[in-house]
Design a protein around this nucleic acid. Structure first.
Length: 1089
RNA sequence: GGACGCUUAGCUCAGUGGUAGAGCAUUACCUUCACACGGUAGGGGUCGCAGGUUCGAAACCUGCAGCGUCCACCA
C-alpha cells in the first residue's frame, strides 16, 4: 500500500515485461477486425550488442507501436536479426585466431560454418534480450533471422526469379576489392576518405615503331577474358600486352620525353597505354606513337612499349595532361581500356601484394611498400622528375578500414528492378502533388493520413499492373531525404551481389566441368536430380527455362535447343541454374559432379526482402494470398531507420517491394539522427565514447533512458548524447512517481465522477491545460516530432500540473492552518457567487468559481472529493499519454493507483497498453464542465499575484522559511478558495484582502492584475532598499513603455497591422502604464516621508 | 565539383511575420508533512555576417563566412 519515496525501476521493469509477454499483449492477431498497424524492425546484427543508436531507433518504434495499440489498431511490430555476413564472419575468425590460433582455412568451410552457427547460438540472443530490457513491444512469436530456412528459400526464390528475368548476370568486371576481407564489395560499402600522399612526376621516352603501320594496341584486343591473371592471381598468359608480334618490331627512340603525374607509381608495370586529350596541342601529334614504360626495369625495350592514345576524358589542366592508363587497377582506366581495346594487366595478388608481373623489384611487396620502392627505382633510373605533397580521396572498405583495390574479377551482378516505380513512389519536397490532402493541421486529420492509407492498402496486394485506387505514395520524414534517394536512383549502377565469404546465403548456382561428358549425360544427371524434366524443357522452346545452362567461361546461355548445346560439352564448364531448390535435388546434383558456386550473396541481398520475407512470403501466388499475416500487415505502416542505410536498405526494400509484392513496403519512413557524443563525435568502440545502454538502464531505469533520449532527439537531426539527459529522464520518472504518491496519501478510492458544479477555477484551468496537452502530444506524434512530444508532456506535467495545480489543491486537501484572524476577511470575501455552475456566462470579468465553503460539514468534503476526482482524471489521462514513452512506470502506476479497475478488460482493464488514447474534450464536454478560456486568464492573473508576491519577498531578503503576511487591495472579488490558494502558494501566514489598506511607509508593493499587493514588514522596513527596487522597476517599465509607444506612434503600424495586434499593444501599454504609475506613487510616498 | 543540413543563453537545442524560450550549468534562499532525483526567485542572448522585402524579421529573399553530411572515375 505504502509507495516508496523514490521510484525504483529495477523492482518493476522485469515484472511488467513478463506480464505483457504472458498476457500476449505484443502478439499480433492477423484475423483481427481492427485496422492494421505494422512496423518491421531494422534487424540488428545477430551477434551485435545494443548501442545508443539502437536505443533511439527502437524507442521510436516502440512509441509508435504502443500509441497505435492505444488507438485501437491491431499492431504488429515484427522483430528479428540479420546474419551480417562480413561482420559476423570476421568476429568468428578473430575468436578462432585468438583462442585456437587457427584460420578458417585450417578448419575448412563446413567446419568453419559450424563454428559460426555455434557462435550465433551463443551470442544471438543477447541483443534480443537487450531490446526486451528496453521495453520493446515486439511480437516475439514472429521473430525472424535472415538465415532461417524459410527466409533462405525466399532469397533463393528471388535470385532465381531475377535471374530468369535476365537481371542477374555473371561477369568479369571492375569491382571494389577489399584486400583485407578478400572479397568484392558493393559501391555502397566503399567510403571515400581524404588521404595525404604525393603526386609523383616521372618521364617516359616516346618511341616510334618502324615497319608496322598499325598500332600495336590492336594486336591485343581487349576482352574481359584476356586479363592476364587468373582470379587467384596466378600467371596464366604471356605478360607482354603487345604479344609476339612486337618482338619482331624495330623500335626507334626519339629522345622526346613525356612527363606523367601519378599518385600510384607502383602500378606502372600494369600500364598498357599513356593517354592524352586529342584537343591538347602539346600532345595531339603524338597520338599513335608509343612510349617506353620504365617498369619493370628488367624488361627489354619491346616489352616496355605501350601506345599513346587520345581520349576526350583526359583533363588537360591536371598534372601534365598525360595520364598513365592502368586498366586492371583503376575504374576510370578500365573504361578507357575498354574504349581503346587495351589489355588489362593485373599486377597484384588478391591481398594487394604485387605479383610477378610487377617485375622483380616489386614482386611480393605490399602495394604501399611497393610504392616506395617504385619511386626509388624511378629515381635510380633518372625517370623521377619531382614529387609534391598531394591530398586525394581514396576509397576505403567500410568494414575493414583499408583502402580498397579496384580489381577485375568475375562476380554476380544485379541490374536493379522496378527502378522507375521506386523513384516515382516517394513524395518529393514541394512536389506538385504536395502532401496528402489530409496531412496538415489538426491532430485528427494527421491521424487520418495513416488510416486512409491503410484502408487502401489493406486489401490483397495488387500484383497486376492495373491502376491503383489511390496513387501509392510514400513519405520520408524529414522529407529532404527524398531528394537524396531520388539522386541515388537516378545514377544507379548495377549491384555486385556476390561476396567471397563463407557465412551467408550461398549462391544457388551449380556447375559442372563436362570433361568427357556428353550433353545427354548432363541431361541425364539433371533429370535424376530435378522434378522438372529436361524433356519438357526441350519441348518448350520459347519459354524461359527453369534450368539454364551457361557456358561459365563466356557467360553465354546455352539453351537446351541451341546448336552449340548439341555439339556436346566436352571440356566446358557449365552453370546450371536451378529454380526449385530442395535439399534432395541439391544432394543429388552434388553427388553427380556438380559443384555449387563457392560465393555467398551480399547480406543486403537478403535484407532487402525483410518486409515481406519475414511475413512468410513464398512467391507462390496462391500460397501468399492465403497468408493472413501478409494480407493483413503488408504493406507496413512505418519504417524507422538511420539515413546511413538509405541506399543499402531502404531504397532496395522499396524496389524489392514493388518487384515481388507489386506494392511499396511501407507508407512512411522516419529517418532518425545519428547519435554522437557530447563533443559531436560519432560513437565508436575505439574512442570508447559509446555508453552501454544496459548500464544506463541499470543505473537510471529503461523509462529514464527512453524519455531522456527522446527528449533530446529533434526531428531529423543528429543527437548529441549526454548522460545528463538520462538523469533528466530519471528525475522526471521520480516526479511522476511522487505526484501519484501524493494522490495516494490523500486516501480514498478512485473518484469516478467529476461534479461540474463543484469545480474550482483551478480545476477548470488544469482540465483545459490537460486538453491542450492531449492535442499537442497527439499532433506531435502524428508528425513524428518525438522530442516536441516529450517536451510537451514534460512541460504539462511538471510546470503546470505539479508546480501549480497540485499546489492549489493543498488548500483543499491538506489540513489548512487556522484562518487568519483578520476581521476584514469575512466582509471582503463575503460577496461571491452562490453557485459556480453558471460561471460560464461570465466572459469579461474573471468569474468567481465554485464556492468553497469554509471547511465545515459535508459540503467541504464534497469539494475535497471533487478535487480528488479531478486529480484522478488528470493522472489517469496523463499516465496514458506517458505510456508510449515510459511503459514500465506507467503500467506500475496504472495498477497501483487503481485506474484499471473500472475499465473493460481489453481497454485498460488488464494493462495500460490497451487503454484508449486520450481524446481532446468535445464541445459537449467543454460545456458540461464550463471549460471557458476565461479561466485560463483568471488563473494566470492569480499566478501572477503569486509570482510577484514571491518576488517581493525575495527582494526584501526574507528567507523562504520565514513566515510572512501579504495584503491585497483587491481590484475585484475573490472567492475564499482563490484567497486560500494564493495564500498557500505564497507560503504566507496570511493573505488579507483590505480594500482601504494604508501601508506603513516603505512597505514593498507592486501592482498585479488582481490589485495592489503589499508585503507588510512591521518594523523591518528598509526604505533605501525599497526605493532602489522601485526605481529599478520603473526603469524597466519605462523602457518597455517606450518600445510600445514607438510602435503605436508609427503611422504604418496603426494603418497596416491587424486590429488584434494593435489592440494587444494598447492593452499592454495600459497595463504597463498602470504598473508604472503605481510604482511612481509608491516612490513619491517614500520620498515624501 | 555538385547537393543538403546547421549557425539563437556557458552547453545541448525549441522557436516559419507581432513582448526572445526550454533543459542542463550557474547565483541566492529553503530540508515546509509528494518529490533535494525537490521547491522558490534571479543572472545570462544587438538570434553567424552583410544587404533586401515588410508597419514590423530570429523567422521570408539574396549574397558571404564557418561547421557538418552525402554524392561525383581529375590521375
Amino acid at each position: 500500500m505504502e509507495i516508496p519515496k523514490a521510484y525504483e525501476p529495477q523492482s518493476v521493469e522485469d515484472k511488467w515485461y513478463d506480464f505483457w509477454v504472458k498476457q500476449g499483449c505484443f502478439t499480433a492477431n492477423a484475423a483481427s477486425a481492427k485496422p492494421a498497424y505494422s512496423i518491421v524492425i531494422p534487424p540488428p546484427n545477430v551477434t551485435g550488442m545494443l548501442h545508443m543508436g539502437h536505443v533511439l531507433n527502437n524507442t521510436i518504434q516502440d512509441i509508435l507501436s504502443r500509441k497505435a495499440r492505444m488507438d485501437g489498431k491491431e499492431v504488429l511490430w515484427l522483430p528479428g536479426t540479420d546474419h551480417a555476413g562480413i561482420a559476423t564472419q570476421v568476429q568468428v575468425e578473430k575468436a578462432l585466431r585468438k583462442e585456437e590460433k587457427k584460420t578458417k582455412y585450417d578448419l575448412g568451410r563446413e567446419e568453419f560454418l559450424k563454428r559460426v552457427w555455434a557462435w550465433k547460438e551463443k551470442h544471438g540472443g543477447i541483443i534480443i534480450n537487450q531490446l526486451k530490457k528496453l521495453g520493446c513491444s515486439c511480437d516475439w512469436t514472429r521473430e525472424r533471422f535472415t538465415m532461417d530456412p524459410e527466409y533462405s528459400r525466399c532469397v533463393q526464390k528471388v535470385f532465381v526469379d531475377l535471374y530468369k528475368k535476365g537481371l542477374i548476370y555473371r561477369g568479369k568486371r571492375m569491382v571494389n576489392w577489399c584486400p583485407a576481407s578478400l572479397t568484392a564489395l558493393s559501391d555502397e560499402e566503399v567510403e571515400m576518405e581524404p588521404q595525404k600522399g604525393f603526386l609523383y612526376y616521372f618521364r617516359v621516352e616516346v618511341a616510334e615503331v618502324v615497319g608496322q603501320a598499325s598500332s600495336l594496341s590492336s594486336s591485343s584486343g581487349f576482352q574481359p577474358e584476356s586479363v592476364i591473371t587468373s582470379r587467384e592471381g596466378r600467371l596464366e598468359a604471356c605478360p607482354t600486352p603487345t604479344g609476339k608480334d612486337a618482338c619482331a618490331t624495330a623500335i626507334r627512340r626519339t629522345d622526346i620525353w613525356l612527363t606523367i603525374a601519378t599518385t600510384r607509381p607502383e602500378t606502372i608495370p600494369g600500364d598498357t597505354a599513356v593517354a592524352v586529350n586529342p584537343k591538347d596541342p602539346r600532345y595531339a601529334s603524338l597520338i599513335g606513337k608509343h612510349v617506353l614504360r620504365p617498369l619493370p626495369a628488367e624488361y627489354p625495350p619491346e616489352k616496355k612499349l605501350i601506345p599513346i592514345i587520345g581520349d576526350e576524358h583526359i583533363d588537360i589542366e591536371f598534372g601534365t595532361g598525360v595520364l598513365k592508363v592502368t586498366p586492371a587497377h583503376d575504374k576510370a582506366d578500365f573504361e578507357i581500356g575498354q574504349r581503346h581495346k587495351l589489355a588489362a594487366v593485373d599486377i597484384m595478388e588478391p591481398n594487394a601484394r604485387m605479383n610477378d608481373l610487377a617485375g622483380a623489384d616489386l614482386a611480393g611487396l605490399d602495394r604501399f611498400e611497393a610504392r616506395k620502392v617504385a619511386v626509388e627505382k624511378l629515381r635510380a633510373l633518372g625517370a623521377l622528375v619531382k614529387e609534391e605533397p598531394y591530398e586525394n580521396k581514396v576509397g576505403f572498405s567500410q568494414r575493414a578500414r583499408v583502402p580498397i583495390e579496384p580489381r577485375l574479377s568475375e562476380q554476380w551482378f544485379l541490374k536493379y528492378p522496378s527502378v522507375e516505380k521506386s523513384k516515382a513512389c516517394v513524395e518529393q519536397e514541394g512536389s506538385a502533388g504536395g502532401p496528402p490532402a489530409d496531412s496538415g493541421g489538426s491532430p485528427e486529420s494527421s491521424l487520418n493520413q495513416f488510416e486512409s492509407g491503410e484502408r487502401v492498402l489493406g486489401g490483397p496486394p495488387n500484383t497486376t499492373r492495373g491502376p491503383r485506387v489511390l496513387p501509392a505514395k510514400m513519405r520520408f520524414h524529414p522529407q529532404r531525404w527524398a531528394k537524396v534517394y531520388d539522386h541515388w536512383l537516378t545514377n544507379i549502377q548495377d549491384w555486385c551481389i556476390s561476396r567471397q565469404l563463407w557465412w551467408g546465403h550461398r549462391i544457388p548456382v551449380w556447375s559442372i566441368t563436362c570433361e568427357g561428358k556428353q550433353t545427354t549425360d548432363v541431361f541425364h544427371i539433371l533429370d535424376q536430380c530435378l522434378s522438372e524434366t529436361l524433356e519438357d524443357l526441350l519441348k518448350d522452346k520459347g519459354k524461359e527455362s527453369a534450368i539454364r545452362i551457361i557456358n561459365a567461361e563466356t557467360g553465354v546461355l546455352l539453351r537446351p535447343n541451341a546448336t552449340e548445346f548439341n555439339h556436346g560439352l566436352n571440356g566446358v564448364r557449365v552453370h546450371v541454374q536451378v529454380a526449385s531448390v530442395d535439399e534432395k535435388s541439391i544432394a543429388s546434383l552434388e553427388g553427380n559432379g556438380f559443384t555449387q558456386d563457392p560465393d555467398v550473396l551480399d547480406t543486403w541481398f537478403s535484407s532487402w526482402l525483410w518486409p515481406f520475407a519475414t511475413m512468410g512470403w513464398t512467391g507462390d501466388k496462391a500460397q501468399d494470398s492465403s497468408n493472413a499475416t501478409l494480407q493483413k500487415f503488408y504493406p507496413t505502416t512505418d519504417l524507422v531507420t538511420g539515413p546511413d542505410i538509405i541506399f543499402f536498405w531502404v531504397a532496395r526494400m522499396i524496389m524489392a517491394g514493388y518487384e515481388f509484392m507489386g506494392d511499396l513496403p511501407f507508407r512512411n519512413v522516419y529517418f532518425t539522427g545519428i547519435i554522437r557524443d557530447k563533443q559531436g563525435r560519432k560513437m565508436s568502440k575505439t574512442l570508447g565514447n559509446s555508453p552501454d545502454p544496459l548500464e544506463l538502464i541499470a543505473k537510471y531505469g529503461a523509462d529514464a533512458l527512453r524519455f531522456g533520449t527522446m527528449r533530446g532527439a529533434p526531428l531529423g537531426q543528429d543527437v548529441l548524447f549526454d548522460e545528463k539527459d538520462v538523469e533528466l529522464g530519471r528525475n522526471f520518472c521520480n516526479k511522476l512517481w511522487n505526484a501519484c504518491r501524493f494522490r495516494q496519501m490523500q486516501g480514498g478510492e478512485v473518484q469516478g465522477e467529476i461534479n461540474p458544479n463543484l469545480l474550482r477555477s483551478d480545476d477548470k484551468w488544469i482540465l483545459l491545460k490537460l486538453d491542450q496537452a492531449v492535442r499537442e502530444l497527439t499532433e506531435s506524434l502524428a508528425t513524428y516530432n518525438f522530442s516536441q512530444a516529450a517536451q510537451a508532456i514534460y512541460r504539462f506535467f511538471w510546470n503546470e500540473y505539479c508546480d501549480w495545480y497540485v499546489e492549489t489543491t493543498k488548500s483543499v486537501l491538506g489540513r489548512p492552518p487556522e484562518p487568519s484572524p483578520s476581521p476584514l476577511n469575512g466582509e471582503s470575501a463575503g460577496v461571491r457567487g452562490e453557485n459556480g455552475s453558471d460561471a460560464s456566462h461570465e466572459v469579461k470579468t474573471p468569474p468567481h468559481p465554485g464556492p468553497l465553503p469554509p471547511s465545515r460539514g459535508g459540503e467541504g468534503d464534497a469539494t475535497r472529493a471533487n478535487v480528488l476526482a479531478v486529480i484522478d482524471f488528470v493522472l489517469s489521462h496523463t499516465l496514458r499519454l506517458f505510456h508510449p514513452f515510459m511503459p514500465f512506470i506507467t503500467e506500475e502506476l496504472w495498477h497501483s493507483m487503481g485506474f484499471k479497475e473500472d475499465m473493460p478488460a481489453d481497454q485498460g482493464g488488464t494493462s495500460i497498453m490497451t487503454a484508449p488514447w486520450p481524446k481532446p474534450f468535445s464541445t459537449e464536454e467543454r460545456d458540461f464542465y464550463s471549460l471557458d478560456d476565461c479561466y485560463l486568464e483568471f488563473a494566470n492573473a492569480k499566478f501572477e499575484v503569486v509570482t510577484q508576491g514571491r518576488n517581493l519577498r525575495r527582494e526584501a531578503n526574507l528567507p523562504s522559511n520565514k513566515k510572512v503576511k501579504f495584503v491585497l487591495k483587491p481590484a475585484q472579488e475573490l472567492s475564499d478558495n482563490d484567497r486560500e490558494v494564493i495564500r498557500t502558494l505564497l507560503n504566507a501566514e496570511a493573505f488579507d484582502l483590505v480594500p482601504d489598506y494604508a501601508p506603513a511607509k516603505g512597505t514593498p508593493t507592486t501592482r498585479t492584475p488582481l490589485g495592489e499587493l503589499y508585503l507588510p514588514l512591521e518594523g523591518l522596513v528598509d526604505v533605501g532598499a525599497e526605493t532602489a527596487r522601485l526605481k529599478k522597476e520603473l526603469e524597466k517599465f519605462a523602457s518597455e513603455i517606450g518600445k510600445i509607444e514607438a510602435k503605436l506612434n508609427n503611422a504604418g503600424f496603426v494603418a497596416k497591422a491587424p486590429p488584434q495586434v494593435i489592440e494587444q499593444s494598447r492593452k499592454q501599454l495600459e497595463e504597463l502604464q498602470a504598473k508604472s504609475a503605481h510604482a511612481k506613487k509608491a516612490l513619491e510616498t517614500l520620498g515624501a516621508g
